[in-house]
Amino acid sequence: MAQKENLYISGHSKAVLDWHSARTAANSAAYLLKYIRPDMHILDIGCGPGSITADLAALVPQGSVIGIDVGPEVIEEARSMAAKRGLKNIGFEVGDAHALDFPDHRFDVIHAHQVLQHIGDPPHALREWQRVTKQGGIIASREADSGSAAYYPASSDLAEFQGIYRKAARSRSGEPDGGRHLVAWARAAGIDRSSITATASVWCYSTPEERAYWSNVWIGRLVESSMRENIINGGFATAKDLDRYAQAWRDWAADEDGWWTLLHGEILCHF
């Protein structure tokens, strides 16, 4: 099957990769870790720069981890990072989440962080992931839920941006509220409800350092990532609008009362 178009709205600019590189198994896959055994073989789908992938590899010294992503440039970043960490049981490949180039029942664990919300047909992808999962294996997915964001102080510009982002993501066949859809997507893929464990966790940003980090994530996307181009070209907002949203993020970060939370849905599918 031909590789599907990369629908990821933000692309892989330095600002985006810096954010993805801050993700670890501990802060982004905690719901999965107690199921990991040292001899497991793991597939990390949508691995990005490979920070979570590398952490998983360190947990399976008698096993192996393969990370795949649609972007060749980000795969090179991941390979470089793994080499610096001296990991020998890890590999990275360009791959399509809808059509995996692996035989049936190849992996003990399929892991995906912030992937299903960005692809065109989540149930189809989950069926494909199930194909390469061993009997007794696990599919693990964690997805943000954009519509759950709660923040202080109120900002009409940030509220406007939230709506623009959601429209733009959906125009590219994404679902920014992916977290709340996980159980439904898994059931649509034919996975029995009794095999699905659903949980949730929250990102919270409140300290000056946390506010600076979270605001810079979005300022970087508004200023230099392909999200800016996609929003402007799609007619969702103007360059002037995006600059105004970036300033709203700066203002929020500078406010000592600033607070932001974002809910994540998580599923473990046991086979």
Rank of each mutant, 00 (worst) to 15 (best):
T24N: 01
E143S: 04
T199R: 07
K34G: 00
L100K: 07
A188S: 07
D177L: 01
F236W: 15
S195L: 05
I231Y: 01
I231G: 02
R127E: 10
D157F: 04
V65N: 08
G120H: 05
R79E: 14
H270P: 00
K84Q: 06
A253L: 08
V223H: 04
A188I: 06
W203G: 10
D104K: 00
P72D: 13
W203V: 00
A140I: 06
Y245R: 10
H181N: 12
Y152N: 07
L87G: 12
T238Y: 11
G178H: 13
I267H: 04
A237F: 11
H12I: 04
G137Q: 08
A237Y: 04
S141I: 10
H118W: 14
P123C: 00
Y245T: 13
D251A: 14
A15N: 09
I90N: 02
D18H: 01
P61H: 00
A248C: 12
D101M: 01
R250I: 09
P176A: 12
S173F: 06
D101T: 06
S171K: 11
S13I: 10
S10N: 05
Y205H: 13
R228H: 09
E160P: 00
A184V: 02
L126R: 02
G178M: 08
G258Y: 06
K14Q: 14
E5M: 11
H105R: 14
M1I: 02
A97K: 12
I68L: 13
